[in-house]
Design a protein around this nucleic acid. Structure first.
Lengths: 206, 206, 206, 206
DNA sequence: CGCTAAACGAGACGGTACGTCCGGTCTTTAA
DNA sequence: TTAAAGACCGGACGTACCGTCTCGTTTAGCG
């Protein structure tokens, strides 16, 4: 005996509408910002009934999250990757590898295609716990995991202190950049990324 | 013939209404969250006309920023301080001093009285550049400055590497905690704060 | 080359669905009123796809008209009549015969099973000319015809003025009752029906 | 201790909006019919917020009733009358007076300016009891009362049978015309009106 | 009696309007 | 003379149905 069906039948879902909604959502957020982006506006721009959005997503933020993840998938596909998350390179030189990756992150954060939607997601996730959890699970955690793995390799290679907490290590590398970008406390540049890596690895004390 | 009045006359401002608006705003954000807090609701709860809010603040977020700063002032006054920002203690033991302050920060971030409004401000500031700048200038920068000063003292005392960038150093101490709290990527505890300080000061490498 | 099929094949029509739709339609109108009765609701209650309704009827009102006519047929069948419209009795006493029939009409109008659907049909027909014509042709005209015939018999028997217009005579007997019921301008009772017949037959002047 | 205010303050009501709403409502009903007339459409055409309609009227039908009564008032004013309902003339010749008035009613029912809105009101009132009562009280009863008074005068002048029920008498004069018009059971002409008066006054029997 | 075309249930779709809520502006009223 | 109170226009909210359009699944009738 099965529970009565509540959720819509995913198999009948229109792929065309899904695409149009993602495109419209990201376009609108880029054009008018997140707050001024409305579900009504997305539906109109996508040429889709409002109900088609409400049927599949619980909120504007959820649409944006899916649209953003889809954007990442597309980029990864275009880059020829099999799946979204590509591992951090391991050349043996930890410092160089981290600088490479963080410089790429700086570029990404500076790309308006990512900046506005990501900002909106981060902001909404900060305030809306349910969404925040989803953002962490589906977007942030996979990224962090790549760092954890690279750092673990380094630790096993004897390049890191054995008592290093890898979670804290990742925080040290990632949070300052993220925070600077999100709160606009300072410029987000390649130089900052590199200096950051150096300070983290060497520590502050003499 | 006088020039047409543009800005309201600050001297005629009703202190009683100001207080009532702050109280109502913070109460509502605590009760129903930021998104569900409306100017209409604040006005109603404060027993104030909507126009009285629109006359003095450009947006809901601006009200909240002032209300939050006022909240900080009140707390500082209650603690007997002359002004809002009290310096980080300098016992000579940098590590101990930083742990003390960060543990206090953990406590503050865990206090619902601060958590919700601060979260709302951070989120809104991430997305709304004008507000973001104000938040940084009036709220974050003064706090950061205290760290900069304590760290500079330590560097001058020869306890820090001479090539340390103090801004980056502050970032390393503050951002991981802030990020963890804001994005909910992990628990925000005294233990985390202490381990953070240790990792930052000693660095990751052997 | 054959013309493209436009109309559905009546022979394959599901009698079971037809019944279920009529039952559901009348039930819903009784429960929630005509305006709140929706095609979607009828389909759901009848356990029928929406398309099955749209395939056979052009509008909610058309469904109701058929359902109501079907209801009348059922009642007539139950009463043992061969067809729907049974003639007005001719006992020789016109006044008595008319009182009898109008009292029966009063009872019918007071029966909620007929009241609500009939009201809805009359109202919709007043506003929607196409439906109005159908209602008159299929529902009202057959009824009126029975009166015309009874009155013609009376006129031929010398009981009515020879210059009487039978259409007007029917109007005089039927409209006041119908109007009172439809517009609720007064109570619809046996007494009213009898007084009405008396006034119509004798005229107002001395 | 007074109950909390629920209803809006009538004194602050905008006369300009009221007018614009009535004009838009009647225009739309004339252009697209009652069913296709929406509150949204009325608001848009009147250049008014939807809330301004919902604030003052509970339903589309209620707007229409007020608009229609206002239309009647305007017509009466234009005709130089002090109030809406002008008495039926009393020339001493009852038959002539009634024919005059019913011919005028025929003209009115044929005027599209009145036809469509009145039809919509009658239909809605048939189905919606609350509105129906309002329509009767505010629109129909005042009109009927004029007939009652004229007929009473005739009865007192010895022109009518003393046992005539005036309510029934009014029904006999008014309902057949109204019914014919509303249900479209036949043409609504001056000739019909005159024949109707004659039949009513003289009765059907020899 | 088995094939096949149709009618069927289900329900997603692009839309329209609903009635509510709130944003900002403007007007009235009472202190 | 200044707010409170609140009406106003505008517009998005999330919901309910509209009427159309697939989907697979009966089901009926012909071959």
């Amino acid at each position: 005996m099965t529970a009565p069906r509540k959720t819509p039948d995913r198999s009948r879902r229109s792929a065309r509408s899904r695409r149009a909604i993602f495109d419209a959502a990201l376009a609108l957020i880029g054009e008018v910002g997140y707050a001024a982006t409305t579900i009504e506006g997305i539906a109109a721009k996508a040429g889709v009934g409002k109900q088609t959005i409400y049927r599949w997503w619980p909120s504007k933020a959820a649409v944006l999250l899916d649209a953003f993840l889809d954007l990442g998938d597309q980029a990864a596909m275009a880059a020829g990757a099999d799946d979204r998350a590509s591992a951090i390179p391991d050349s043996g030189d930890l410092e160089a590898d981290l600088k490479l990756v963080l410089r790429a992150t700086v570029d990404e954060l500076g790309d308006p295609k990512y900046d506005l939607p990501f900002r909106a997601l981060a902001a909404e996730g900060a305030v809306n716990e349910d969404l925040g959890v989803e953002v962490v699970e589906r977007l942030l955690r996979p990224q962090r995991q790549l760092y954890v793995e690279r750092l673990r390799a380094a630790r096993e290679a004897g390049q890191l202190r054995e008592d290093s907490d890898l979670e804290i290590a990742v925080d040290l590398l990632v949070s300052p950049l993220a925070q600077r970008w999100l709160q606009r406390t300072g410029p987000v540049t390649h130089e900052y990324a590199e200096a950051l890596v150096e300070h983290v690895l060497r520590g502050l004390t003499r």
